[in-house]
Amino acid sequence: MASRRIVVLISGSGSNLQALIDALNTPALPRAHIALVLSNRKAAYGLTRAQNARPPIETAVLALQPYLKTNPGKSRRDYDLQVAKLVAKHNPDVVVLAGWMHIMSEGFLDVLSGDAPYDGEHKVQKPIPVINLHPALPGAFDGAHAIERAYEAFQKGEIKHSGAMVHRVVREVDRGQPVIVQEVEINLGEPIEAYEERLHKTEWDIIVKATAKILDEVAPISS
């Protein structure tokens, strides 16, 4: 069986990407490789992580504002379609948003579901699942700054714990079906940095487990 293909979208340091790289072709993530790491920030350290991998992983950068500046008349939706085109051309079995700080429009999902063409008349042959890592529990703290908002809510006595999840990406932000959910305690008196460090370790674990779970659904390894 051919190696199963992953495309990873990042915006920052790429620690979640590193967890995936480290798990490739181990029992945690067997018979898999990352076909492309795409960043919307050219300074993202995750690009360096990809280039330092062995073998090196192909990278690309497509940032929103430079795209709009060099393509007068184009919109944010056009940008999202261009991202979808780059992704679709690498024919992934799964797309992983690993700290991708950009909310994708419906056009992106329409291309990867096969409902819309990505290049002329070309459509993806079968729907490509898209999953996202989010540092909160289902239905809580959707959107940006989830860690800070959860920590603040704990300090106010509004919650007893938080956590992280990997969920399927749908049109509603952070409301897709959870793939993996993991609670993380917030300890009384601990600084937010300590909680954040423990949360990130959980994220590294569940992003690998969720990616493996989706791959096993869409491209199972035959015995």
Score class of each variant (00 low, 15 high):
Val7Lys: 00
Gly14Cys: 03
Ser15His: 13
Leu20Cys: 04
Ala23His: 01
Pro27Met: 04
Ala32Val: 01
Ile34Ala: 01
Ala35Gln: 14
Ala35Thr: 14
Leu36Asp: 06
Val37Ser: 05
Ser39Trp: 10
Asn40Asp: 15
Arg41Trp: 00
Lys42Phe: 07
Ala44Tyr: 11
Gly46Glu: 08
Leu47His: 03
Leu47Ala: 03
Arg49His: 06
Arg49Leu: 12
Gln51Met: 12
Asn52Arg: 14
Ala53Gly: 06
Arg54Trp: 03
Pro56Val: 08
Ile57Pro: 10
Glu58Thr: 12
Thr59His: 02
Ala60Arg: 07
Leu62Ile: 03
Ala63Gln: 14
Gln65Glu: 12
Leu68Pro: 09
Pro72Met: 02
Gly73Phe: 09
Lys74Pro: 12
Leu81Asn: 07
Ala84Leu: 09
Ala84Trp: 10
Lys89Cys: 00
His90Arg: 12
Pro92Asn: 05
Pro92Tyr: 04
Ala98Tyr: 10
Trp100Lys: 02
Met101Gln: 12
Met101Phe: 10
His102Cys: 05
Ile103Gly: 03
Gly107Phe: 12
Leu109Ser: 01
Asp110His: 09
Val111Tyr: 11
Val111Asn: 10
Gly114Val: 09
Gly114Phe: 09
Asp115Asn: 14
Ala116Cys: 01
Ala116Val: 06
Ala116Thr: 09
Pro117Asp: 03
Gly120Pro: 07
Lys123Ile: 01
Val124Asn: 06
Gln125Asp: 14
Lys126Val: 13
Pro127Ser: 09
Pro129Tyr: 02
Val130Gly: 03
Leu137Tyr: 06
Leu137Glu: 04
Phe141Leu: 11
Asp142Met: 10
Asp142Thr: 11
Ala146Met: 05
Ala150Gly: 12
Glu152Ala: 14
Phe154Asp: 05
Phe154Cys: 02
Gln155Phe: 01
Ile159Asn: 01
Ser162Cys: 05
Gly163Cys: 08
Met165Leu: 09
His167Trp: 07
Arg168Glu: 15
Val170Ala: 03
Val173Pro: 02
Asp174Phe: 10
Asp174Lys: 06
Ile180Asn: 00
Val181Leu: 04
Gln182His: 14
Val184Glu: 13
Ile186Thr: 05
Ile186Cys: 04
Asn187Leu: 13
Pro191Ile: 05
Ala194Lys: 14
Leu199Ala: 13
His200Ile: 07
Ile206Trp: 07
Val208Leu: 09
Val208Pro: 08
Ala210Met: 10
Thr211Gly: 00
Lys213Thr: 11
Leu215Glu: 09
Asp216Tyr: 10
Glu217Thr: 15
Ser223Leu: 15
